[in-house]
Nucleic acid binder design. Structure first.
Lengths: 226, 226
DNA sequence: AAAAAGCGTTACCGGTCTGTTACCAAGCCG
DNA sequence: CGGCTTGGTAACAGACCGGTAACGCTTTTT
C-alpha cells in the first residue's frame, strides 16, 4: 500500500512518514502543491494525505485535480482555522480530515478506515460466514443450493461488514460510516441498500430470514445456519 | 468507565481525581511508573492519563508497555519543555496529550473525546439476573420456558437497571434519572413504561409476579427464582 | 447511441414508541 | 367519613422508524 504525504512542515512530514512506515506502508512525500501532483502521477499512490496550506499550489486545488482524475482516497490535514476549507475539501471529494494536533495513532486509524472503505485495500480472499461465501473480487455471493448472485460494490461492502460481525447487531450508524465514510449521513440510503440487497438474496423480503432488522438499532445476520 | 491516573505530583493527582469522579468516572491512581503498570493490569481501566515525568519507570516506557499489550486510550500530561517527549509519546501510540497547566473542563473534554473515538465499539454482552437473560444488543428478553420478547430501547434500559440491582428496591427517582437522564420527566412516564413492560413480560399484570411494586418507594425484581 | 444498471433522493404508508391527559381503585389521614 | 396521595389502566396524538415505490441522474454495458 502506497501513501503519498503532502505536507510542507518537514518535521510533521517526518513523523507521519515514520508512523506509516512502521505500520507497513510504502511512503512518498511532496512538499508543495505542484510537486504533489507530479508525485501523484509518478507514484499513483493508494491514498493521499494532504495538508491544505501549501506553497505554490493550494491544497484545495490539488484535491480537486486529483479527484477529477481518480478515486484515490484523500485525507485532509488542517488546523482549526481552516474549518471552511475543510468543508470545501470534503465537498470536493476528500474522504476524511484530521484536525491538528492529532496523534499518529488516530491518523493511522483513519488511513486504515479509508482504505478499507474503498475496498481497494484488502486483497480479498473469499469471505465465509453464516453459511454463505462472499467473493469480494467478483462481487458474487455464493450460497449452497442457490445460483451465485451478482452484487453491486455497495451491496458487497454492506454484506461484508455484516458477515465480519456475523452474529452481532451492527448499529445503523456504524454501517453508514463503514459503507459511505464518516460523512455519510442519510439513513434512507441505508434503507434502500438493505432493501435492494434483500430483493437480490431473499425470496421473501417481507419476512427476512437472513438479513434481519433489529428495530431502533441496526441490522444483523444470523451466525448459525438454521 | 474506569480511568487510571498516573501522576507523581499528589496535589495534581488529587485535582484530576476529583474532577473525573465528579463527572461520574471511576478513578484509580498510581504514583510511579512501576505502580502504573501494576495498576493497569489489576484494574484494566478504560483510559489512562499518564504523566511523562515519573519516578522508577519513565512515562514513555509505561506508554510503550501498555500499548504493546492493549488498545486502551492513553492521554499524556506534559509541561511545555517536554515537547519532544510528547511527540515520541504520540508515536508510541498515545492518543492525545494535554499541556500543563490545563483546566478541568479541557481535561474532561479530551477524556470524553478519547473514549468516544475508540470506545464506541463496546458491545454489551448479555446480562443475566433473577433467572432471566437480557440481550442488550438485540433488545430481547429471554426466559426459560418462554419465547423471546422484543423490547423497546426504554424498556430495555429500565429492565437492565432493575436487573443490575436485582434483589434491591430501586427508588422511582433513581429509575427516572437512569432511564431518562438528569432532566427526567414526570413519574407518569415511568408508570407507563412499567405498565407496558409488564404487559409484554407478564401473564397477569394485575398480580405481578416478577416486576414488583414497592408502594411509596419504587420497583424491584426478585433476585431468586420462584 | 441506446439500453440497462447503480444509486441517491423524495414521497408515502403503516407500524411502533412514547409523552400526555384522563379516569378509576386503593390506601392514608384528619 | 371525605379529601388527598399513589399506582394501575385506558385512550389519544405526535414523533419516529422501517419498508416500499417511483423518479432522475450518472455510469456502465451493449
Amino acid at each position: 500500500m502506497k501513501v503519498l504525504i503532502v505536507e510542507d512542515d518537514l518535521a510533521l512530514a517526518g513523523v507521519l512518514s515514520y508512523t506509516l512506515r512502521q505500520a507497513g506502508y510504502e511512503v512518498s512525500s511532496a512538499y508543495d502543491g505542484q510537486a504533489a501532483l507530479d508525485a501523484w502521477q509518478a507514484e499513483s499512490p493508494d491514498l493521499v494525505i494532504l495538508d491544505l496550506n501549501l506553497p505554490k499550489l493550494d491544497g484545495l486545488s490539488v484535491c480537486q485535480q486529483i479527484r477529477s482524475r481518480s478515486d484515490t482516497p484523500i485525507i485532509i490535514l488542517s488546523v482549526r482555522s481552516d474549518e471552511d476549507d475543510v468543508v470545501r475539501g470534503l465537498e470536493l471529494g476528500a474522504d476524511d480530515y484530521i484536525a491538528k494536533p492529532f496523534s499518529p495513532r488516530e491518523l493511522l486509524a483513519r488511513v486504515q478506515a479509508a482504505l478499507r472503505r474503498l475496498g481497494s485495500t484488502v486483497i480479498p480472499g473469499p469471505l465465509t460466514a453464516a453459511g454463505i461465501t462472499l467473493d469480494r473480487e467478483r462481487l458474487e455471493l455464493h450460497r449452497p443450493g442457490f445460483d451465485p448472485v451478482q452484487l453491486s460494490a455497495l451491496e458487497c461492502r454492506l454484506l461484508e461488514i455484516l458477515m465480519l460481525e456475523s452474529g452481532h447487531v451492527v448499529p445503523a450508524d456504524a454501517l453508514i460510516t463503514a459503507v459511505w465514510g464518516p460523512y455519510g449521513t442519510d439513513r434512507t440510503a441505508l434503507k434502500q441498500l438493505v432493501y435492494r440487497l434483500r430483493r437480490k438474496i431473499e425470496d421473501d423480503p417481507s419476512a427476512p430470514t437472513f438479513l434481519e432488522t433489529v428495530p431502533g438499532v441496526g441490522y444483523t445476520i444470523a451466525s448459525d445456519i438454521s
